[in-house]
Every structure is written in C-alpha cells, then in structure tokens.
Amino acid sequence: MAEPGLLIERIGPIARLSHNRPERRNAQSAAFLDALDSALADAIADPAVRVIVLGATGAHFSAGHYLKDPDTMRHQRNPEDRYEFESRCYRDYALRLWDAPKPVIAQVQGACIAAGFMIANMCDLIVASDDAFFADPVVGAVAISGVEMLVHPWVMGLRQAKEFLYAGGRVTAAEALAMGMVNRVVPRADLEGVTLELAERIARSSPFALRLMKRSLNRTAEIQGFRAALDAHFDTHQLSHMSTDGQARTAGDMGAAIGAMKRGSSV
C-alpha cells in the first residue's frame, strides 16, 4: 500500500518504511509524516513484524522538511499554531520512533539533512552508505535555533555537536562512524543487503527479550535526562522563531543553504 510519499514493504519479519519522493530528494511534507507515523503504529501492532527499517528510494535519504508544502507553511503563521503543529509532527512523531518497542534501523544514503537527521537519529541503529552525509545548517541559514529535536549531543558527543550546529558544516559517513553516530558504513551498492541482513539477524532474537533490552537501554539515556533535555530545547526552539534575526530570514534562505549542502559547497 502506498501512502503520500511513503513506500511500505514487508520483507519476511521486516517492515520497511521508505521515503518515496526522490524527485524532491525525499523532503518530508506534513502528509508524509502523518503517513509514516501511521505506518509505524501498524508495524508495531503487527506481531509478525519483528524489526522496522526506515529507508528511502533514490539518491538521498531526506533533504529535511519540504519547504514548499502548503500544509507545513500554513502552520507557521502564528506561534500558537506552530507550537501545536511541531509538537505533533516533529516532537511526538520523533519520540514514537525512539519509544517503538521493536528495533528500528535507519538505512541512510546520500543527504541526511535537518529533519532527515532528526528521524534517522531517533532510530536504534544507523547503517549508512559511503556516500552518505549528515548536515543541519539551520542556525546559519535561518538565524534560529531551528533544530526541533536536539538529539545531536546524545548521538555525536557534546563538542562535535557544538561544531556541527554552530558552523553549519557536514559530517561524512566515515566521520559519523568515528563519532559512534552510525553503526556501519558500507559501499552504496551493498547498503540494502547489509541493512536487511542485520535486520534479519536481529529478527531471530526473542521479540520479548528485544523489547525489554530496548527499554533498559533507552532508560539509561532517560535517567541521564534525554527526554527532559529534548523537551527543554523544543520550547527554546519555539521561542527562537520570534527573534529579530529569525523574523528577518525567510524559508528561501533555508532552501538555498540546503541546496548548497547537496551540491557539496559550504554555507
């Protein structure tokens, strides 16, 4: 069954949910995020599904939010509407990936930018192709603390996250591996096969044991303040939209920065 911009596949005990708008570099509309959240719930509820893979068709995992999506833009008109919309589509949906009782693997190729970075890094594991790169240029592009979910210090380390966000650079797959942000880096041609092999190996484990282990591992982060830190930053992010610099910038600036990232130039 195809949903807006989403490809849903069953491969034995694996449910693969893929961004499927390669012509726009898999930028995420509000409709896509709704469909992804619904498909995730279906995969969690299906006892035959033991592992979930979050992937993408085409050259790139995701270029982030779809800045021409009228539904997304409609919710940016006032602070109250934006807060409710982003709470649901960004914070709540992202945390449901984190909270999923089944292992979730991100299969990442090409650009993994902004909102793409957010959802990939809420997964349990990341397998990346050797041409993958990660970027989040929102501070320089739109002059706001535009990261909705500040997962960065948890997956990159604090100092790496500071440079990454302050300077708006990009991290290659090899650099992400060295940081511990991704689990494996493989040739592009091998990405799907390696990801499925890992998913199939995990699927052979006891579902109940996996569920309990994931709960314990996630609780380790929770005890250190993971969820409270994400929630605290989410409110700061909302406030930053109202800054003088933030109000002066436009979505076009963000689009230009992301375009430059995909072309490999600096911003």
Rank of each mutant, 00 (worst) to 15 (best):
M1C: 06
E3I: 01
P4Q: 09
G5K: 12
L7P: 00
I8S: 10
I8L: 11
E9D: 14
P13C: 05
I14N: 07
A15M: 11
R16A: 13
L17P: 05
E23M: 00
A27I: 04
Q28R: 11
F32W: 15
L33G: 06
L33S: 12
D34V: 15
S38N: 10
S38I: 10
L40D: 02
P47G: 04
V51H: 08
V51T: 14
T57Q: 14
A59T: 14
S62Q: 05
A63T: 08
D71S: 11
D71C: 05
R74D: 15
H75P: 02
H75G: 08
Q76S: 11
P79A: 13
P79R: 10
Y83P: 01
F85P: 00
F85S: 07
E86Q: 08
E86H: 07
S87H: 02
R88P: 00
C89S: 11
R91V: 00
R91P: 00
D92M: 02
Y93Q: 05
A94H: 01
L95E: 07
L97T: 01
K102S: 12
V104T: 12
V104I: 12
A106F: 10
V108R: 07
I113W: 02
I119E: 05
D124G: 10
I126F: 02
V127R: 05
V127L: 08
A128L: 08
D131W: 04
V139T: 03
V139E: 05
G140L: 11
V142L: 06
V142C: 07
A143Q: 11
S145T: 04
S145A: 08
E148D: 14
L150A: 10
L150P: 04
V151K: 04
H152L: 00
P153K: 05
W154T: 08
V155F: 03
M156Y: 15
G157P: 15
R159M: 13
A161R: 03
A161S: 15
K162H: 08
G168W: 01
V171L: 14
A174V: 10
M179W: 15
M179C: 13
N183P: 01
P187S: 06
D190R: 13
T195W: 07
E197Q: 13
E197D: 14
A203T: 04
S206E: 13
S206D: 15
A209T: 13
L217D: 10
L217N: 09
R219M: 12
A221G: 12
I223S: 01
R227P: 02
A229Y: 05
H233K: 03
F234H: 14
D235R: 03
Q238F: 00
S240A: 11
S240L: 06
S243Q: 04
A248F: 00
A251R: 12
M254K: 03
G255R: 09
A256W: 00
G259K: 01
V267S: 02
